[in-house]
Amino acid sequence: MTLQAVVVRFPGSNCDEDAHHAAATLLGAEARLVSHDTADLGEPDIVILPGGFSYGDYLRCGAMARFTKAMDFVARYAERGGAVLGICNGFQILCEAGLLPGALVQNSGLRFVCKDVYIRVETSRTFLTGGVPPGTVLRMPIAHGDGNWRAPEGALDGIVSRDQVLFRYVNAAGEREEGANPNGSLDDVAGLSNERGNVVALMPHPERAGDALLGGTDGAVLFQAAARSLLSKLVRS
């Protein structure tokens, strides 16, 4: 049995090829790159929204991409319980679409930040972290100007108590500290899931950390976990 993965390419996506490569090699999926103006993405086991600068980040990051035919499909697909992974700009698009709570605004330091960071897995209840013990520290790169997550007013406590915080920025030892958060994100949030756990996203780039040649393999941990979770779902159904 082979997983079917779809990577949506928006005008301005620039991590689409990397995400496609990761889906094919790390997830072991039959992976397709599809255009944003595709209304029917078929019956994939996972949809990946890649990083980049869709629509030039005009208006707000992800604000335009959210109103595409592919995103109409993704909203219905997520509603049916389909697995959706957003990376960087994909995270911003999912927030704009209301599929994840909150919004991502400009980094508190005003600068575009491009470096390796450490993130801590906070829950293993999602397909992306299934079987990965909470507390696991992963190193992978970030490259964004707008990764400063803000919760809807008064919603943070609920998001935390429903175990929707998927990753937090930490230091190499796995501890939260001021210098470890690269963008001012509220509660050190680096990744989130929806309540059901089928829509997940993170600002760091696991697809850029899947090969020792690229400087790290911690990203592979997440794609392999996703492969296990999604394949076991296939077997059960």
Partner: peptide, 13 residues
């Protein structure tokens, strides 16, 4: 306008 209470890094700069 950014909501009251929402951090505005641009305004701060």
């Amino acid at each position: 306008m950014p909501k009251a209470g929402i951090l505005d890094p641009q305004g701060k700069a």
